[in-house]
Structures are given as C-alpha cells and as structure tokens.
Design a protein around this nucleic acid. Structure first.
Lengths: 146, 146
DNA sequence: ACGAATATTTAGACTCACACCAAATTCCGG
DNA sequence: CCGGAATTTGGTGTGAGTCTAAATATTCGT
C-alpha cells in the first residue's frame, strides 16, 4: 500500500483488474473478453502482463485469481473510482452520470491526489457508486485503517 | 465551439497548442522543441498533424500560427485547465499544486463535463491559475458569452 | 474413455501516438 | 552568394491495445 502510485497498470489493465476483483475468486478469460467486448486473445495477453506485475495468478486454461497485492490494488482502484464519482456528484452530476464520467477520468488520478481529496472530504463512507472502503486509504492524516 | 468534445487532439498535441496560444502570433519549431525538451523533428511531425486538423497554419520553415478554430480550441483548453485547477483547489491543494495536478488530469475532461462543472461553480472568473475566460463557454445554461 | 465441441493460448500482424537519429533541404545574415 | 543554423524528411523503435488464424488444452456427452 505504501508503494502504490496509481499508475502501475495501464487504464485498460486496471479495468480488467477491477472486474476480476468484483467477480471474486477465479475469473475466466472468456468472461472478461465478453464483458469488455474484445477478443479472448487480447485478454490473455493483458492477463499475462498483469500476472507479471504480480497482481494476479494466472493458471493457463484455468483462469485468474487476485494475489494479495492485486486485491489491495483493486481496492484502491475501487476507492478511487468512488471518490472521483463522489466529487463529480458534487458538481451536479446524477449518481449514474457521475459513475460513468468517473470511469473516464479516474485513471488520471494518482493515489496521492485521490488520498488528498478523500481526506478533504472527510473520508466519506458512501458515493453514488457504492460504499467506500478505507482499508487501504492510508491518507497520511487518516485515522481509518480498516 | 459547438463541435468540440475536448478529445480532438491527443494530450501532447493539446499541450503544444496551448503553448502556441500562450506565445501568440508566430511560433517556431525550435521554440516548441526547447520548451518540451523533444527533438525538433518530433515537433514538426506533431505540427503537421495539428495543421491537418485545422487548428494551426503551418508555413514550412517559418513557424505556425493559430487559425480561428485553433484559437477557439486553445481557449477551451485553457479554460478547462483553470476549471480543473479550481476544482482541485477546493480539495485542499495550494494554487501551484492544483495547477500541476490539473495539468496531469485535465486531458480526461470532456468539454461537456468541463461545462457542467463550470456551470455548477457559477462560471467563476478566477482560478489559482489565472483568469477564466468564458468566451467559448457555451454551457447550455450559461449567460456569459464573451 | 473417446471424440467432438468449447475454451484458451500462441504467433504474427496492424494501428496509433510518441520519440529519436541522420540526411536532405531551406533560410538568412555577413 | 555562401555557409551555418533551422527545419523537414525519411526511416526506426517502443509501448499499449487490438485482431485473426492456428495450435493446444479442457470438458462433456455417450
């Protein structure tokens, strides 16, 4: 959690990781390919690289599963998404719009920036996108740790 | 102004365009290359493409100058930058930090999103980054037009 | 347990954006 | 008008993402 900058994975790979996290347990290549409307081979290549980065464990032909580092990273991605969506909702966007727009811009927010905003908002527990977990928030000034 | 989405130019080209706008009048290839620390040939290539998109007029060996469309686009880019910086400053970032961080994330903000935020903020006239011009704001609900 | 259908991976190729270098070209001031 | 400086051209390389076709592995039904 210390080392995360928020830019370890490209935005596409981050999306895959978030999806894997949301599905929980083992996720198959085809499932991801269908969800993102890309060829299975595209997913295999990305998965191989995400695995090389240490966020997932890839058992060829049998799917992937998050590693502890992957779980931590996915939680950060989710928290970031929700924080960004929450910010947007403060500028008049409806929850679902905020969520859609957040998905388009969240990849630009570093972990530090996310944490500063989170902190400034008083570590909110909810956004229009769902509950915000602060397990890995580690904003320097954050009292919440799990 | 009607057609701008905010994603017509890649972020790198948008930076070049903003720089050209800030310099005013004719800008030379070498000047841009020096400012961004890239080889002149890299700039020439980008300039050719920006010209093809209609935002600048490129007279080979003599530099570039914004077209009316380019001026309009650059103004949008500048307004977007300042709006984003202003938003960040509302979450505890100091003006210069807000400006730096805005530079990193602004390219993700579509014109529509920028306008919604601008509108929600009441079409502010200033940000830590400078004066915000609403000439081309054209937020549907915006009364300011120049 | 076998073979077909399905799922997955591998290999090769493409695009786009960005960058570089070296060579050719153009410009400009003495 | 000539040479140095600026610029452009042309060729290359990288990284991310995508695709197709072919190879390979798994799974399921009989």
């Amino acid at each position: 959690m210390q080392g995360i900058t928020g830019h370890e994975l490209s935005s596409r790979k981050a999306e895959y990781l978030k999806y894997i996290h949301m599905q929980g347990d083992v996720v198959k290549t085809t499932e991801i390919a269908a969800r993102f409307s890309v060829a299975p081979s595209t997913v295999t290549k990305a998965l191989t690289e995400i695995a090389k980065a240490g966020y997932i464990e890839h058992t060829p032909y049998h799917g992937v599963r998050l590693t502890p580092a992957g779980t931590e990273y996915a939680r950060f991605l989710l928290r970031r998404h929700r924080i960004v969506a929450l910010v947007l909702s403060r500028y008049g966007l409806e929850p679902d719009e905020a969520c859609k727009e957040a998905a388009k811009i969240e990849q630009c927010f570093s972990k530090d920036l996310t944490n500063r905003i989170c902190s400034s908002l008083g570590h909110p527990m909810m956004s229009g996108c769902g509950e915000i977990e602060h397990d890995n928030c580690c904003c320097p000034s954050c009292g919440r740790q799990g």
